[in-house]
């Protein structure tokens, strides 16, 4: 536990002092400030657009952060040989990996909270500009934000897994982006092949491949609650419950795989 905490705090300090992340955080902050301005371009849904833009910017920021942190935090330690100094101390590799993960996860959630405060201001401001017939539903917006956070924590674990497997930087980055796009699309494809026209258009082998991918890849679209937030639709509580369980199991499973692979890794 002691070592987990140490790696966790060291990683968090590393993230806090990373110049590149400072620049990115600044850029995304600008993005958030633009939200009320861009919202004005909508004809009839200034408030809905503000919510959409806010969640979009959050999503985009988290995407960048999760890929960067997930891919680089272990890769950089290996590449710059910091890991040799660290792992030659009596630290279990499992503690090192989990400490890294916890720091990244906490940082992503911290970003969600910070952006949430900014979002509260921008959405309130935009909502006052043009009265929508739909009320601003804060529980829905917070749900969408937390789900977004959960999703990108899962993506960061995917990146961690890749960075543990690969020695080059190309595979983790390309692999993570690929898994993200594929994992966001599988739900749509799955629904398509189960619909009448889809079953006809796609060959049987294709259908099996899509089904296999659907159950194998992380289902990122399950975490998308933007529509519920923007249009204040009633939240499907049972779906949310299943999604949270799915997240817990999938994340644990990936961390488990990563830790097995990391345990076997040699640092030459």
């Amino acid at each position: 536990m002691q070592h987990f905490k140490l790696i966790f705090s060291a990683t968090f300090v590393a993230i806090k002092r990373d110049r590149l992340l400072h620049a990115l955080a600044g850029a995304s902050l600008l993005l958030f400030l633009l939200v009320p301005v861009i919202s004005m371009f909508s004809m009839r849904q200034v408030q809905e657009l503000a919510i959409t833009l806010f969640l979009s910017s959050l999503s985009f920021t988290l995407l960048i952060f999760s890929i960067l942190l997930g891919v680089f935090s272990i890769w950089k330690d290996i590449e710059k040989r910091y890991i040799i100094s660290v792992l030659s101390m009596p630290i279990k590799r499992k503690d090192y990996l989990l400490g890294k993960f916890a720091a990244i996860a906490l940082f992503l959630m911290f970003t969600v909270c910070l952006m949430g405060i900014i979002g509260y201001g921008t959405i309130t401001f935009a909502a006052h500009q043009y009265q929508s017939e739909i009320p601003v539903s804060w529980p829905n917006i917070f749900t969408a934000m937390l789900m977004s956070g959960a999703k990108y924590i899962l993506l960061a674990v995917v990146a961690l897994l890749f960075s543990v497997i690969s020695t080059s930087i190309f595979l983790p980055i390309a692999g993570t982006i690929g898994i993200f796009l594929a994992g966001s699309a599988t739900q749509g494809l799955y629904e398509y092949i189960n619909s009448g026209s889809g079953a006809q258009d796609i060959s049987l082998t294709g259908q099996y491949i899509i089904k296999a991918l659907y159950y194998l890849l992380p289902n990122f679209s399950a975490f998308d609650y933007q529509v519920y937030a923007a249009y204040a639709l009633a939240l499907p509580l049972d779906t949310i419950f299943y999604t949270v369980c799915y997240w817990l199991i999938y994340t644990s499973f990936l961390l488990f795989c990563a830790s097995i692979i990391f345990e076997k890794k040699e640092f030459r």
Binding site: S42, T52, S56, K151, F180, A185, F223, Q226
Partner: peptide, 14 residues
Amino acid sequence: LKYITADQKLLAAQ
């Protein structure tokens, strides 16, 4: 667009 915009569908629509 549905497949390449991932979780930015609403933004793509708007």
